[in-house]
């Protein structure tokens, strides 16, 4: 399997205005992934499927990840001159990382027996209208799994042929896999206190 940098170059050669970023995985598994811009996600996916060097014909695993808004703390060393003496001071800066939902695709090639190439799509926000383009027209194997991501995370997939709830019932309103989900009393009744 070629390195991700090489694959990124190939994609950029074939789909000129694609925005690709490599997301590093610091763990021992070292399965790094490609963050793909939403506008060109479908052409990029089609290229990965059809390119003769990659032939990623099999979308194995499609899933969502919820990243709520968090405060990131960053420590920096700054040189300051206090009373004429230059000192190194540690400065903590805080900034808010806006929340987003992520859809992760694990792609393999059955024809060339290689993989995985991991794609990530990020929504712009975590509202109820968070959306990404659907890759089901490229890989049919994503059909039920994207429905599941819609059902449990609340990501809308543009271009999905049959976007309905799949595990929860149709009248259900919430998205249970989001990190801030709390069940309503109708879903999970609060037990009556023991007298």
């Amino acid at each position: 399997m070629e390195s991700l940098e090489q694959i990124k170059l190939w994609i950029e050669g074939a789909v000129p205005d694609a925005r690709i970023e490599i997301v590093a995985n610091p763990g021992p598994a070292a399965q790094h992934s490609l963050l793909v811009g939403l506008d060109q996600a479908v052409p990029v996916a089609r290229f990965l499927l059809e390119d003769s060097r990659l032939r990623l014909d099999y979308a194995s695993n499609v899933t969502g990840v919820d990243w709520p808004e968090t405060m990131l703390k960053e420590k920096r060393k700054v040189k300051q001159t206090i009373d004429g003496v230059e000192r190194e001071i540690e400065e903590t800066s805080e900034h808010v990382r806006p929340g987003y939902l992520e859809v992760v695709y694990h792609l393999y090639s059955m024809a060339l027996k290689q993989g995985p190439v991991i794609l990530r799509l990020r929504t712009r926000d975590r509202t109820a209208s968070a959306r990404v383009p659907s890759l089901t027209p490229v890989w049919r194997g994503a059909e039920f799994q994207e429905r599941e991501v819609f059902d449990l995370f609340g990501v809308l997939f543009d271009g999905h042929p049959d976007l309905r709830r799949i595990l929860m019932w149709d009248g259900f309103r919430d998205f249970p896999m989001r990190k801030d989900y709390t069940p309503t009393p109708e879903v999970e009744p609060v037990p009556a206190p023991i007298p």
Binding site: N25, P26, G27, P28, A29, Q31, S60, N61, H106, P116, I118
Partner: peptide
């Protein structure tokens, strides 16, 4: 407690 990261095993 594993270190931060991710893995897909199949």
């Amino acid at each position: 407690r594993p270190k931060p990261g991710e893995a897909y095993g199949r």
